[in-house]
Amino acid sequence: MNRKRISLRQELPLLVWLVFVWGALWQNFSPGNLLFGALIAVLVARIFYLPPVELGGRFNVLRAVPFALVFLGKVVAASFQVMYLAVVRGPDVVSAIVAVPLRSHSDLLVTATGHVISLIPGSLVVEVDRSTSTLYIHGINVRNAEDAAKLRKEVRDTEAGLIRIMGTRDELSALTQEIAA
């Protein structure tokens, strides 16, 4: 194996997650079980080696908690919205496919934005253009240009929230400049 090893610090989030899954599956968080889980996590990470996820180098917990709560609220709102549309509008629902250029070119942020967007009201990622980091989003109940603009703003705001949580410092300063301007 001559592939470049990544540092333990970069691999740590993955290992912690694997140990947590191990403990959760056994429903046993005793030190012995966790130690054995850690051993297996290291083995798995060595044998089934995947390209490392490039983290932004920072994680803001104070921003992440409100973001997660707002996200949960939006999932609830989205579900009731889809239920309303399914029962009341049904076959007559009008949609649109909207292109939304993102600020960030990091794979992690584009993926995270796509995931969050797919779960909050009225949007679904149809296509991703990685070279320009543009998301093509299918919005349900988008009847005119005004609705499309609203959807575009929603996606950009979601991305801004994610950059505040885990974007790189450069992305964060670019974002603050953009908002100040």
């Binding site: 989205a78 579900s79 889809v82 399914a86 007559d92 949609s95 679904l124």
Partner: peptide, 25 residues
């Protein structure tokens, strides 16, 4: 709601909306 959505929405992509959101909640 997800089941009603799958049945009543007109095309594949609006059905995918019904299959994702209410299901997760």
């Amino acid at each position: 709601a997800a089941a009603i959505g799958l049945l009543r929405f007109p095309d594949l992509m609006s059905r995918m909306h019904a299959a994702t959101k209410p299901q997760v909640l």
